[in-house]
Nucleic acid binder design. Structure first.
Lengths: 133, 133
DNA sequence: AGATTTGTATTATTCATATAGTACAATACT
DNA sequence: AGTATTGTACTATATGAATAATACAAATCT
């Protein structure tokens, strides 16, 4: 698992054991940082070369992720300048948001059940992580 | 997303959009069903051919998943008979279990944050899914 | 103006995943 | 005994992911 700390605004961790392609993990984590307002419009993302070094992966893999983010309008890039969070907000339909919430909760509860965690213990677990994420 | 319902003991859903290889999703969901005691030692898994039809994927993909589960001792297979949950328990070290719990909680909280869900609203969300998983 | 940084584009290679098809042998059933 | 079911094994093909290397052009910095 690789780790990069960029002024605490964006922390990308690649999970080699999840089976999810690296470029998709990068896309997802940047998206989540923007949605959570940890990255704001106009913020500059790390350059392709520097992120590649930090994550110890190939620059083309970063470029692939950035390219897809740009196609979707989430970031804008400028040769010679860099890549920035777009002014355009990520517009997620409310029904899509609700569906993703539901999917995430269901997956989480299944994981907890598989790990033998009682439903009644879950609020305490979450409370314990209050300041840590 | 494919869905298969096998006497309510094992429900496997493949998520084509997650990026996780199908065979790994199958392994993970069977493992979780065993850990959650929805599948018990001695229970028979669906045959390779029948699960392939249910999930609309190639039997070799199922065979690959079952093969890995067998290598890890989680299931036992018998040509002509079938594949069964092993008597051997999945022994997870307590520190590994705690680490997986932590990873799962952190990922879940990040997802909720990205979706704009307030921490204080999470217990209510989880409560709403009490009987649905 | 020149150098540096930045993203873009391309070609090539390797590995992983998934599919398709086929055949074989062991077990279970009739 | 014969048939059906089951898992195993193999070959072949296609696609996706990731890497490696290189070169180019635009923007920024000195």
């Amino acid at each position: 698992m690789n780790n990069t700390n960029l002024g605490k605004k964006l922390v990308i961790q690649l999970d080699g054991s999840s089976g999810v392609p690296f470029y998709r993990q990068i896309i997802q984590q940047i998206e989540q940082a923007i949605l959570a307002k940890r990255l704001l419009p106009g913020d500059k993302l790390p350059t392709i070369r520097s992120l590649a070094i930090e994550l110890k992966i190939n620059p083309n893999t970063i470029a692939k992720a950035y390219n897809e983010l740009e196609i979707r309008g989430i970031v804008v890039t400028q040769v010679g300048s860099g890549t920035y969070v777009s002014d355009q907000e990520i517009d997620m339909a409310e029904n899509e948001r609700q569906e993703k919430i539901e999917q995430s909760v269901v997956r989480f509860l299944r994981e907890m059940e598989a790990l033998g965690v009682k439903r009644s213990d879950i609020p305490k677990l979450i409370e314990a992580f209050k300041e840590e994420t």
